[in-house]
């Protein structure tokens, strides 16, 4: 089975203080730690498990610069067999459509039965790339998968649907699945895994290598333009009860009483 997994390197935002860069279009990245997007980690794990069950080849792909290579090495260490870095200055400033365009150009020349993507990224958070890529590849897709089994040329997918429900559906291969949290528990990268892939060469492809004009990708090929980033307006703020714990709790009980909460 040929499995492709599309991943992205994103900043770890959990504990970081965020600052908007001087150009107003990105974050200051100097103090940020980067790692694989959480949902892409589920996708890699799912890809590797499919390979372990059915045999085959897992290819990990990302769009990014040399720094982005680390997520490909991570995927390799988790069990992917090969990795492709789509690296070109022309890819910069891409919207999800332009990213899907670059991924599509790469994947269309590869054999594949299943393409896996994370359902969403923790940075741009649009959740579009997987669905757009499926449309470009013209394969069926299922978004927000929480369960995946492949058997006899078909994928049986459990996914999150309307009203907080889950539905089990079946699609023919080749197909594209986007991974939601709950799909699996990604394995830890082992030192053994790191050692095994230390010398694996990661292929780099430019827009030209993919047969794409520079105007078809990156900012030029985007359908949605980013005008700028801003800090959210302060808006309404809760009345924060200060003072000692006892005083704060007493006031809170008072507020609850006023609102008929007691």
């Amino acid at each position: 089975m040929d499995i492709i997994v599309c991943i992205k390197r994103v900043p770890d935002l959990a504990e970081a203080g965020l600052e908007i860069a001087a150009d107003g279009r990105g974050l200051r990245t100097e103090d940020l730690d980067f790692d694989i997007n959480e949902w892409d980690d589920y996708a890699v794990e799912a890809a590797v498990r499919l390979k372990e069950q059915h045999g085959g080849v897992v290819t990990a792909i990302t769009v990014g610069d040399e720094d982005a290579e680390e997520v490909l090495r991570r995927a390799l260490a988790m069990g992917a067999d090969q990795a492709i870095l789509l690296d070109d200055a022309a890819f910069a400033g891409a919207d999800p459509f332009a990213i899907a365009t670059a991924l599509h150009a790469c994947i269309r020349s590869l054999p594949f039965d299943v393409v896996l993507c994370g359902a969403v990224t923790s940075d741009g958070a649009s959740g579009q790339v997987g669905g757009m890529l499926a449309a470009l590849l013209d394969v069926p897709q299922v978004a927000l998968a929480t369960g995946l089994e492949v058997d006899g040329g078909r994928a049986r997918v459990r996914h999150e649907v309307e009203g907080g429900l889950e539905r089990e559906v079946e699609v023919a291969l080749p197909c594209l699945i986007t991974a939601q949290s709950g799909l699996n528990q990604p394995r830890y990268v082992s030192i053994r895994g790191i050692r095994k892939v230390a010398d694996v060469a990661i292929a780099a492809r430019s827009a030209g290598d993919l047969g794409l004009a520079a105007t078809a990708v990156g900012e030029a090929g985007s359908r949605v333009r980013l005008e700028g980033l801003l800090l959210p307006p302060a808006g309404k703020r809760a009345e924060i009860l200060e003072g000692s714990l006892d005083a704060a709790v007493a006031t809170l009980v008072e507020r609850l009483r006023e609102r008929g909460g007691l």
Binding site: L18, L27, G124, A125, S222, R225, E227, G228, P232
Partner: peptide, 15 residues
């Protein structure tokens, strides 16, 4: 739209 976990907003426009 909200990006980076809602800590930042992005102004976007359709091409």
């Amino acid at each position: 739209r909200a990006v980076y976990g809602g800590k930042v907003h992005a102004r976007v426009v359709a091409a």
